[in-house]
Amino acid sequence: MVVYLAAFYAYPLYRNVDLSVRHYTVRSFVQGDAPFSGLDNYREVFDDPTFGPALGHTALFTVASLVFQFAAGLALAVFFNRHFRLSATLRALFLVPWLLPLIVSASTWSWMLNSDSGIVNAALSMFGVGPVNWLTSPDWSLVSVIIANVWIGIPFNLVVLYSGLQAIPGELYEAAALDGATGWQQFWRMTFPLLRPVSAITLLLGLVYTLKVFDIIWIMTRGGPVDSSTTFATWSYRLGFGNLVPQFGRGAAVGNLLILLAMALSLLYIRTQRKQRRP
């Protein structure tokens, strides 16, 4: 029994230690052979002119993606919560954007948003809106990647929030309807508060996933033009692998800042949630 415990309990633990060792080796690989440089990498990163914009873009990208994904996911979940013909099939089809490989979604969106031949600009021109340089203008590149990311994120929000809605007993709504509550009142006074724990988890996971987003931005814009859609994730990649001379130390430093940011935000979030739950 002890042997078994050691083998099957220590094994995943070993994996985790292994992972943490691997993180360590990022730095030891770069700094081990090179002279020890302490926090120099971090200092360089902070002083880099890209730092401010990257931080801002990361924040904007994350907040905007979360808000729109969650709002759309919740609205659709409420919509699908009533059974109607085809509702199950349609709900399943909504999973498609989430299941597609990110590179597929990203390349499809980049063609759809193409300035000259994209379907989006063609549709806009029917309403007399001039061509928007979605991916090539610094004003729009961040908006474009947010649109694509929201599209990918809606299914996850929908599925999780829907399962949360299903857990709310139907009698509650019947009672509320008897008391004369309108649909809108039912939603804000009952559904929304009762859904709060599930919403919290959804947003927390969404936050963690969104901070990590790299593929979509890199494939659609490479963080450009002129860093206008650079986030910490793409910046880290560019430092580490995007240049002819890799700057692993600084790339890893940016990446570690991203982890710290994710952990700090989730801890903060969990704490405020706990406080709210206490009467």
Partner: peptide, 8 residues
């Protein structure tokens, strides 16, 4: 983030 793991 995957990118950190990738560097490791």
């Amino acid at each position: 983030p995957g990118i950190i793991m990738a560097m490791g």
